[in-house]
Design a protein around this nucleic acid. Sequence first.
RNA 1: GGAGGGCUGACCGAGUGGCCGAAGGUGCUCGCCUGCUAAGCGAGUAGGGGGUUAUUAGCCUCCUCGAGGGUUCAAAUCCCUCGCCCUCCGCCA
Length: 416
Amino acid sequence: MIDLRRLRDEPEYRKAIERKRVVSGLIDELLSADDERRGLEAQVEQLRARQNAASKEIGRVPKEERPAKIAAASELKDELTALTPDLERLESTVRALALQVPNPADPTVPDGGEDDGEVLRVVGETPQAPPHDHAEYGERMGWIDTARGAEASGSRFAYLAREAVMLELGLVQWVMSKLVADGFVPVVPPVLVRERTMEEAGFFPTDRNQVYSLPEDELFLVGTSEVPLSALHRGEILPAADLPARYAGFSTCFRREAGTYGKDTRGIFRVHQFDKVEMFAFVPPEDSDDEHLRILAMEESILTALGLPYRVVNIAAGDLGNAAAAKFDLEVWLPSEGRYRELTSASNYRDYSARRLGTRVRTDHGTELVHTLNGTACAVGRTLVFLFEHGQQPDGTFVVPEVLRAFVGFAEVPPR
RNA sequence: GGAGGGCUGACCGAGUGGCCGAAGGUGCUCGCCUGCUAAGCGAGUAGGGGGUUAUUAGCCUCCUCGAGGGUUCAAAUCCCUCGCCCUCCGCCA
């Protein structure tokens, strides 16, 4: 949720929002509805104050004087009940509109859309394409079965098998232990959440069509453990000493991938279900820039340890999600395609999600909203895609990255 | 599955229709006192929204006693729905 007061008072704030793609007229509509709301709210509160005072008086006054007073108070009540529906309607209008307004982009974020991200640095050598792309290699090695996945569940589902499973679990173990060593609290969160949780995490209403729902139970499958992790301190006022609070969530993630028909259809690059280790941090507002860089550094160290060449992109305003004020994408070289493809990202939500969640920190000068940040530690399935290509030798042997060997139990896999 | 009890401020805990945003205690903050040991005395100590003044303060006001709804001039207190916790019985492992 954006800060309505700042939207009203600070032209700069509004401009930073408009650097993103915003439905035209939305902000003006919101501002005028909010204006109307505050006017009516003042009126209603004044009336309620009078009614409260009248009611209190009844209790203090001798019994015989009560009936007349009660009658007077009744009239005030009637006036009040006449006005409240209007106020309620306005409030929900304001809320519905405000939920659609994205978090303003940081000044450091470049203008433009998808193609306007700023490449901050390029790390590592980009190799030639291997004999087989990940999909072909995966099928050949008996690691990926998309055909049977489709039988069971439809397109964009796959079975993962044999050594690939050990690689998957090894990746999770390795990344998790690395994060725990860095002070992250490991968490396996619920993957089914309430609508409210989706909304407060910043995903609803804007990304609703990307989310699987279970209408029967009014629950939704999370697309990332970021969602339940953000809810971890819902409605809490945290002592300053508890911050930063860093969590490493492991969960399966579910995405409808609506609007991606025909894109990335080979193998398991883009699927409806995958496992992921996610970093999530709650920090004091003044620390969120540092934390953002810290998360980015962790992601880079993971890619480096896996031997994957990558580049860091500062995502442009129009390409930022609804909730992010700034986002770095780490794009890894995909040899078969001869280009960098997104593997992980790190986002700073500032107080956008915290405002919806009501997560605050107690400071010397009162309470303030925390900032929340998240970043991918390891999107397991997609990481395998890159490993299958980068670890594939000319003769078809697969070489396991050094750091994973202790976790997967083997150093290489002979060709099949 | 059956029966019962509970959910109050940072924490413990009182409170069954008005004088309760809420006794008392603990903790914390400030001041005083005391040559000693987890001592004594006093004061203060929720969050959020709106307005106003105009700003690192104050003032007015509304909302919040698990959540949501209802009854009433008036609800922590009565009624309904939901969530969570606990105890006992049963059942399954």
